[in-house]
């Protein structure tokens, strides 16, 4: 009898969890009564896997701003999918060792490229503005770049150079804070994600070395 499950569409995969016996961990997306739901799942039957899955699931709440849904699933309070954001948070959380307690980040980040700290202010309706603590041309440019990084990582809309908003109209402070360090160098984050996803694609002999 088949053991694979009908648990929705897999939207992200960590093929080897370095912190737990190189098991694979998948993030699945399902349709719930109140919108998109997510399930962290591993097909590994090794002892301790449920504990590792529970750790990642809990960390998704603490570090991604998701809340519990039925049957061990997760959802954003707004019910939206926020596909790129939830996938990025999942990938970052899977890098956490089990002895590292998950913690929500602050809505600010030090940007070494401008030698300044960028602070994000949340407003009603899922709007966020970005401001640097230094008034230089470099800081202004970089603040816009970081706002653009959040647009790419969280699929927000750019309202002006330093303001973004979620289309769902809801606040996602924890998610924005978690993605903020990645937004400093969004190209590197995207490259890393693409490189991980391309592992295991068999190249034709003519493309191999």
């Amino acid at each position: 009898m088949a053991q694979t499950l009908d648990i929705g569409r897999r939207i992200e995969l960590v093929s080897m969890d370095r912190h737990f016996h190189d098991i694979s961990l998948g993030l699945y997306r399902l349709d719930g009564n109140d919108g998109a739901e997510f399930l962290v799942h591993s097909y590994s039957g090794l002892a301790g896997v449920p504990g590792r899955v529970a750790f990642v699931t809990e960390a998704m709440k603490t570090m991604g701003g998701l809340v519990a849904a039925e049957n061990g699933r997760l959802r954003f309070p707004c019910g939206s999918e926020h596909n790129r954001g939830v996938r990025r948070v999942f990938l970052d959380i899977c890098k956490l060792a089990p002895d590292e307690p998950p913690a929500a980040r602050e809505l600010n980040v030090f940007d070494p490229k401008a030698d300044s700290t960028v602070t994000v202010t949340a407003y009603a309706g899922g709007r966020y503005t970005f401001a640097a603590d230094k008034d230089t041309d470099k800081s202004a440019t970089r603040t816009g770049a970081i706002a653009n990084g959040i647009v790419k990582l969280a699929e927000t809309t750019l309202e002006d150079d330093t303001t973004v908003s979620f289309d769902c109209g809801h606040s996602h402070d924890v998610l924005v804070a978690q993605l903020l360090p990645r937004a400093i160098n969004v190209r590197a984050a995207v490259r890393e994600q693409e490189a991980a996803a391309s592992r295991g694609v068999l190249a034709a002999p003519s493309q191999q070395e």
Partner: peptide, 15 residues
Amino acid sequence: TSVATVELMDLVDAP
């Protein structure tokens, strides 16, 4: 040709 995946490797503990 192969239809092996990392998830199937986990399922049957044959990586």
